[in-house]
């Protein structure tokens, strides 16, 4: 027996279904009832019931690509803030190999890096790495923080949403799984992209979002759209992010 429908908004403690269903993400079993533990939208797949959270913190997972800011330089590693309850570290050996060099010369406090989570151990130490395509330090651009659970929505199906924003604003955009978005382009275009990304975050739980984003982009870009429609092209290297 199920008490809610797909895409219903639920709050912690709401009873979702009874024993014949399985607990998914954001739910727990209490006696013979399945209850929600989060504020979110119900997702029912076959006999599995889960709640997609509307708000969350990023919990590091091995293999994720994240954007982090250097907060501290230690003897043989950098400490990074990765917008999570757990801070990450980047070992110097990952950057220099066996060579011993001054850490300050490579990256300084405040630098923003695009990294991969190499490992998360049992005491929640997050080891980061720079090995991989497109990973490294960002120069310029702005950072936008969104809720990590809304990252898949921002990227869209096979990157449809993010590519639309990239095409229309001609900005370089990279999305970290930790909910940090890096945008670089013309200053006005950066602002347009920021507005659109914030709008997507606000309305991520509603349907028909792609059309509204397109309308908003056209509205914000207004006149430029007609003049420059021809020379819209992809000049951005695709960041290797999967949904």
């Amino acid at each position: 027996m199920i008490f809610v429908e797909d895409k219903n908004l639920v709050v912690p403690g709401d009873v979702l279904a009874d024993d014949e269903y399985h607990t998914g993400r954001g739910t727990f079993r209490d006696g013979n009832k399945i209850c929600s533990s989060l504020v979110g939208l119900v997702a029912v797949r076959d006999k599995k019931i889960s709640v997609i959270p509307l708000q969350s913190k990023y919990i590091p997972k091995r293999g994720d690509v994240v954007i982090g800011e250097i907060t501290d330089i230690r003897f043989s590693m950098w400490n990074l803030d990765i917008n999570s309850p757990y801070s990450g570290f980047l070992p110097a050996s990952d950057v220099f190999g066996k060579e011993k060099r001054d850490l300050n010369k490579a990256f300084d406090v405040g630098d923003v890096l695009f990294l991969r989570v190499v490992d998360v151990d049992e005491v929640k130490k997050v080891k980061l790495g720079l090995k991989g395509r497109g990973l490294g330090k960002f120069r310029g651009g702005i950072l936008i923080y969104i809720t990590p659970t809304k990252v898949p929505r921002l990227i869209g199906k096979k990157g449809s949403m993010i590519n639309m924003i990239k095409d229309e604003t001609k900005c370089d955009i990279i999305v970290g799984q930790n909910g940090v978005v890096w945008v670089k382009g013309e200053p006005e275009m950066e602002r347009v992209a920021e507005k659109v990304i914030n709008m997507i975050e606000d309305q991520a739980h509603t349907s028909g979002l792609t059309d509204r984003v397109r309308n908003m982009l056209y509205e914000l870009l207004g006149k430029e759209i007609e003049e420059e429609k021809e020379d819209v092209e992809e000049e951005v290297p695709e960041p290797d992010i999967e949904e």
Binding site: P12, G13, L38, Q55, S56
Partner: peptide, 11 residues
């Protein structure tokens, strides 16, 4: 707490 997205058994 619920608004912050913290998992809870109940309000």
């Amino acid at each position: 707490l619920a608004d912050a997205g913290i998992p809870m058994r109940d309000l």
